[in-house]
Design a protein around this nucleic acid. Structure first.
Lengths: 146, 146
DNA sequence: GTCACAAAGGTCAAATAAAGTCAAATCACA
DNA sequence: TGTGATTTGACTTTATTTGACCTTTGTGAC
């Protein structure tokens, strides 16, 4: 397992214990995991983006911190939010993040079918230039039915 | 026996032991069998496609992997027949017909989501030349999960 | 107040580590 | 012997790790 995954797991479990909000120090975290501080930023941007359902706030300077908050919208609001947030184009990773974010509010079988429909495997025959646009369009078409 | 068959057998037996899910490294596998890495891709596309009842997911970069999952083809002869009957290309009307044939054997909500995913509306951003091919690929990827 | 400095965190690009693509060459067999 | 399947390798794309340098904020000296 990559260090990024280990850090992400650590943060995730902290979020779980603390009921959705977590405050850490970037420097301390980096020290604990023996990596450079910017690695923490990498983890945050790749795994705790708004698409994944998190808000990250930070403060610099003395007493600085990194605060991660799990956003918990419910049901329709979440779906509508996702539909609105998907633009004209979306890459496979982001699409997967959106879908996993909907797990709490929608049938997992439906979600896995949608995930299959927008996977790179399913879209292999689409010109790479158009692939992300097609993915966005398909994803929105599916989500509004949920 | 050709190297592709040997590799396929190896993967198959791994899938057997591990109960249907297997994660390997493309590079390591290639080394073990003394072939180039792209040979692994060849094996995957020719022997572990959705038509064969498998889903292959991969990740590139550090910590990359190839994950093969055998899907529970619990199914219905009707669905399997549909998957095999869909060629490389299918028009919107035919796809809709296939789906309506499955009404008897599958959740209508799932089917309507799939119908949305393969509709011309959802695929409007795909070059018309490629649209029916994309539709076929998406449809198969979804049906295999039913 | 304001200046200097320390204590955070931020950015960005290079280096490294996988996997993907595609087409030419080769093989096997009807 | 022609054709589809297989093998190979040069080139591409994506994910992660690392480090040098930048910006913001708090605090104490003056």
């Amino acid at each position: 397992m990559r260090i990024s995954d280990i850090i992400a797991d650590f943060l995730l479990s902290g979020l779980g214990e603390s009921g959705g909000m977590l405050e850490v120090s970037r420097g301390e975290l980096a020290q604990r995991f023996g990596c450079v501080p910017s690695q923490i930023n990498y983890v945050l941007t790749t795994r705790f983006s708004p698409e994944h359902g998190y808000i990250v706030e930070t403060k610099r300077g003395g007493g600085g911190y990194v605060r991660i908050t799990r956003v918990r919208l419910s049901g329709n609001a979440l779906i509508m939010h996702a539909v609105n947030a998907i633009g004209d184009s979306i890459d496979a990773r982001t699409a997967a993040a959106f879908l996993s974010n909907l797990e709490a509010v929608s049938d997992p079988r439906l979600l896995s079918v949608i995930a299959a429909a927008v996977s790179d495997l399913a879209l292999r025959s689409v010109d790479p230039e158009q692939r992300d646009a097609a993915r966005a369009s398909i994803l929105k078409s599916c989500l509004i039915l949920l």
